[in-house]
Design a protein around this nucleic acid. Structure first.
Length: 678
RNA sequence: GGGGCUGUAGCUCAGUUGGUUAGAGCUGGGGACUCAUAAUCCCUAGGUCGCGGGUUCAAGUCCUGCCAGCCCUACCA
């Protein structure tokens, strides 16, 4: 039976280019969609740019152009990048569309009618120069709990959390102005009213991976759900709320509705009705998203859909993030690779294959190790799969394919049997499993050619029929593998189609061998990955991230990120500095604190009998044993502070954002404990 | 502290509802072949399945405690 399936990927934000981290999702989705189409299902793949919000507004202002102008050029760049990776949308829209505005209005009215909207005034910081309310991340100031200067609006480096309104001496990062407190009316959705429904939805029917369902139950559904703030006061780039002038829907309200609006645009162009896709029990809706936006899609969104009378997603497929060489993507390491940078150096099929070989149903991060990447592509794709065609290509051009499929020891039939398992792996998004099975088939195919020794047959005029049979087997096994791989490698499928003069259109073709036809001249289908290309790609990415540095700076390639993360503090006089008594101290003991996640307990000596007990948040960065004996610089006149684990009588100075990246200040040789730092 | 997930050969991972000597690919070592993109084929090395208990005739597979790692959340000079 033909299924009717609507598929979406998360809408990329129109605030930056696509990078290889984004592509995990779009490639994952594209593979699934191509698989569904190959199986003969009616499947629609839709996506759009997410265009609203403060960040877009600010960026447009900074670049001196209109928001519309900015999002138009972003959309073009996004679509070009996607096309470069063979990601084939049925339609690519924008959340800034008439259809979306209208649908937002409908959803809004349904929420009103269901009496789910409530109004409350909240106090928020406002930038009087930029004339805008400030989201937490646009405010910095002194931490109200520990006095650290220049901390983010909602938490500081030492881990305190607070409200931006508590910050001491706050500054807007937009204008540098001192924000003022201002009351503003906000509109909220009372999600709590939907808790019963959501609990049931989360639990039922396998719409979510179990770990996700557990997360939601453990984290949100166990308690009363907080109201969801869905409005933002003017100025804001978005849709104004009709019955609350001067207020706009928050970007996360209109973004998912963009899925529907984009469908509507497609429907208009294709003479279909929206309800047939979004209010039809027989239509499955599948969302593919990253783990960071889980709760928007699994709580708010189902709640909105339910209230407005639309179909609920059959499944929300959630994936993890991409790491490169085992670490978070990093601009300074050149592993923050833009789609365009990748395409300039190497082949998109490689990445599609690599991601496919790593993706499972789990919400696990996947790692792109450069060496693993090259090895996998070269050994699996080139060495095993394409080699099968390559090694008999010349012979086959002369012999053509036999009329009757020869005895191949059951290889073809075996691969037909494996087809169901491979299909079900694709269906459940366990691509790693599908690829594993396909490679097992490829592993069995090469020895067949090896043992048949076609190169000997070629020399013997009496054995031309045998040669043709070997070619027939090898090419049919290759064709079968290509069909199985075609959702992942559409380009390879196209090449195979052209070569054998038979379009690959259906999964069913893998069940019957191709016989009795001529074969075109073989052309190389895929080159091996050159490590140098990958290195070049990383070099290029590095270069993009710091094009504006001086010579010495270039030599060291120091990134500007730390300064951006933590801009310079206000000027002070020497008398202010003198208040801080920094001393050289020796670590005389260091130990883990039971129950503390980030802390080490240090005993510091200032010489003689003078010691201080200090708790330092450096557990992730330093082994206690390695600290013992070394000299550090401590703040010695800090007022002792009682912590859960005991009294802390000072502070060890260190640089870095925290976590593993903490670097204790050392001092050159010769310094003695107790000496003051001036 | 609370929640989620993971821990199987050097590396990446398979191991179905518990059932004979724990598997694959890659890497390593040895050999063969030459049709093929230094591709391919054959042979070989290698693991007290994180650790300790328990249930069972039988546990990598179930239960429990601990250890390590990752993520979320709170706390954290």
């Amino acid at each position: 039976m033909q299924r009717k399936i609507l598929v979406t990927s998360a809408l990329p934000y129109a605030n930056g280019p696509i990078h290889i981290g984004h592509l995990v999702e779009y490639i994952q989705t594209d593979i699934w969609v191509r698989f569904q189409k190959l199986r003969g299902n009616k499947c629609l793949y839709l996506c759009a740019d997410d265009t609203h919000g403060t960040a877009i507004m600010i960026r447009a202002k900074k670049e001196g152009r209109s928001e519309e102008d900015l999002i138009a050029s972003m959309s073009e760049s996004h679509q070009k990048d996607f096309a470069g990776f063979g990601i084939e949308f049925d339609h690519y829209g924008s959340t800034n569309s008439d259809e979306n505005r209208k649908l937002c209005g409908q959803f809004w009215q349904s929420l009103r009618d269901a009496d789910l909207i409530t109004e409350r005034s909240i106090e928020q910081l406002y930038d009087p120069e930029a004339n805008t309310f400030l989201a937490d991340r646009f405010v910095r100031g002194t931490c109200p709990k520990c006095g650290l200067l220049d901390q983010a609006g909602d938490n500081c480096n030492c881990g305190h959390t607070y409200s931006p309104t508590e910050l001491i001496d706050p500054k807007s990062t937009l204008s540098g102005a001192t924000p003022v407190l201002k009351n503003a009316k906000h509109l909220f959705v009372e999600l709590e009213q939907l808790r019963g429904f959501l609990t049931q939805w989360v639990d039922s029917e396998d719409s979510l991976q179990t770990e996700v369902a557990n997360y939601l139950k453990g984290h949100f559904l166990g308690d009363e759900l907080r109201d969801w703030d869905v409005s933002r006061p003017s100025p804001y780039f978005g849709f104004e709320i009709p019955d609350a002038p001067g207020n706009y829907w928050y970007v996360w309200f209109d973004a998912p509705i963009g899925y529907i609006a984009t469908t509507e645009q497609w429907c208009k162009a294709n003479n279909q009705t929206l309800d047939d896709w979004w209010k039809n029990k027989d239509c499955e809706i599948h969302h593919f998203i990253g783990k960071d936006i889980t709760y928007f899609h699994t709580l708010f969104w189902p709640g909105m859909l339910k209230t407005a009378g639309y179909s609920l997603p059959k499944k929300v497929h959630i994936h993890g993030f991409l790491t490169v060489n085992g670490e978070k993507m990093s601009k300074s390491k050149g592993t923050f690779i833009a789609a365009e940078t990748y395409l300039n150096q190497t082949n998109p099929s490689y990445l599609r294959y690599f991601y496919a070989s790593k993706l499972s149903q789990r919400v696990e991060d996947i790692d792109l190790g450069i060496e693993e990447f090259a090895r996998k592509v070269n050994t699996d794709l080139v060495g095993k799969v394409v080699n099968l065609a390559s090694r008999v290509g010349k012979f086959a051009k002369q012999t053509g394919l036999a009329e009757v499929y020869p005895d191949d020891g059951g290889l073809f039939e075996n691969a037909v049997a494996a087809g169901d398992e491979i299909a079900s792996a694709y269906e459940t998004c366990d691509y790693a499993r599908a690829i594993r099975r396909i490679m097992e088939l490829a592993d069995a195919a090469n020895p067949f050619v090896e043992h048949a020794k076609p190169w000997e047959m070629k020399k013997d005029p009496d054995r031309q029929d045998e040669l043709r049979d070997v070619c027939t087997v090898a090419l049919n096994l290759f064709r079968q593998l290509t069909i199985y791989l075609s959702p992942v490698l559409p380009d390879l499928a196209t090449q195979c189609s052209e070569w054998l003069d038979e379009p690959i259109k259906s999964w069913e073709q893998s069940r019957t061998p191709l016989l009795g036809t001529q074969v075109g001249a073989f052309r190389r289908m895929l080159d091996r990955v050159q490590i140098e290309d990958l290195e070049k790609m990383i070099e290029d990415s590095k270069a993009e991230s710091d094009e504006t540095t001086s010579d010495v700076a270039k030599q060291f390639q120091d990134s500007d990120q730390p300064l951006k993360d933590e801009p310079l503090a206000d000027e002070i006089g020497i008398e202010d500095f003198a208040k801080v008594d920094l001393r050289v101290a020796r670590v005389i003991s260091a130990e883990h604190v039971p129950d503390a996640n980030k802390l080490l307990k240090l005993e510091l000596s200032l010489g003689g009998d003078e010691t201080r007990q200090v708790f330092a948040g450096i557990k992730a960065a330093y082994e206690p044993e390695k600290l013992v004996g070394r000299l550090v610089v401590m703040v010695a006149n800090l007022k002792p502070r009682k912590m859960r684990f005991g009294l802390s009588e000072g502070m060890v100075t260190a640089a870095g954002p925290g976590g593993e990246d903490v670097f204790i200040l050392g001092i050159d040789e010769g310094a003695k404990p107790g000496q003051r730092v001036h």
